[in-house]
Amino acid sequence: MRAAHIKMTVATVFLGSYLVASKVILREVPVFTATFVRLVSASLVLAVYVALKPPGRVHPGRRDSTVLLAQALLGVFAFSVFAMYGVKFTGAIEAGVILGMVPISVSLVALVLLKESISSRRGGGIALAVLGALSINVMSARTSAGSPGSHLALGTLLLVCAVLCEAVFMTFGKLLTKPIPPAALSLILSAVGALVFAVPTAIEFDWGMITHISWQTWALMIYTGVAVNGVAAVLMYDSLDTVDTAVAAAFTALTPVIGAVLSIVFLGERLHPYHLTGMALVGIGVFVVATGPNGSDGSQKRVPRRRTLGEPVPAAKRR
Rank of each mutant, 00 (worst) to 15 (best):
S150Q: 15
G86K: 03
I126G: 00
P148V: 02
P103G: 02
N137D: 07
P60E: 09
P54L: 08
R57F: 08
F32M: 13
E166L: 12
L26I: 07
F172S: 11
D64T: 04
A47E: 10
A167I: 03
I136E: 07
T33K: 11
L152Y: 09
A92H: 04
L164G: 00
N137F: 13
G56K: 10
I93T: 13
L46Y: 07
V112I: 15
L74F: 10
H151E: 14
R63N: 15
V163K: 07
A129Q: 04
V50R: 11
I98G: 05
I118W: 07
R57H: 14
K88W: 01
Q71N: 03
L74C: 06
R122C: 00
F82N: 06
G56N: 14
R62H: 00
V130S: 02
V168W: 04
F82E: 12
T156Y: 03
Y85A: 10
A42H: 07
S144A: 15
E166Y: 08
A47F: 06
F36C: 13
V81Y: 04
S80W: 00
L158V: 00
G75I: 03
I93G: 10
R142V: 12
G96K: 00
N137M: 15
F79K: 00
V29N: 01
V138K: 06
F77S: 15
L99R: 04
G91A: 02
L113R: 11
A51P: 02
S140E: 15
R57V: 12
R38I: 06
V168N: 02
P60Y: 08
G100T: 13
L74G: 01
P103M: 07
T35R: 01
A141P: 15
I126M: 07
R142W: 13
M170N: 07
V29T: 03
G125D: 08
I25W: 02
K115D: 11
G123L: 15
S117C: 10
G146V: 12
I98C: 04
A127F: 09
A34P: 09
S105D: 09
E28A: 11
E166R: 08
L128D: 04
A153R: 08
S144I: 15
L108V: 09
A83M: 10
V102N: 10
N137P: 01
C161Y: 10
T171G: 00
S65C: 12
Y85Q: 14
R63C: 12
K88S: 09
V102E: 05
F32Q: 01
A167Y: 06
K53Y: 03
C161Q: 11
L159D: 09
V40I: 14
L157G: 14
L158D: 06
S65H: 05
G75S: 10
V29M: 03
V40E: 01
N137W: 03
L44W: 00
G75V: 07
A47K: 02
V67F: 09
V168C: 06
L26Y: 00
G56I: 08
L44K: 05
A129I: 12
I25M: 11
K88Y: 03
A145E: 09
P54N: 11
V160I: 09
M170S: 11
M139F: 10
G146Y: 09
S119A: 11
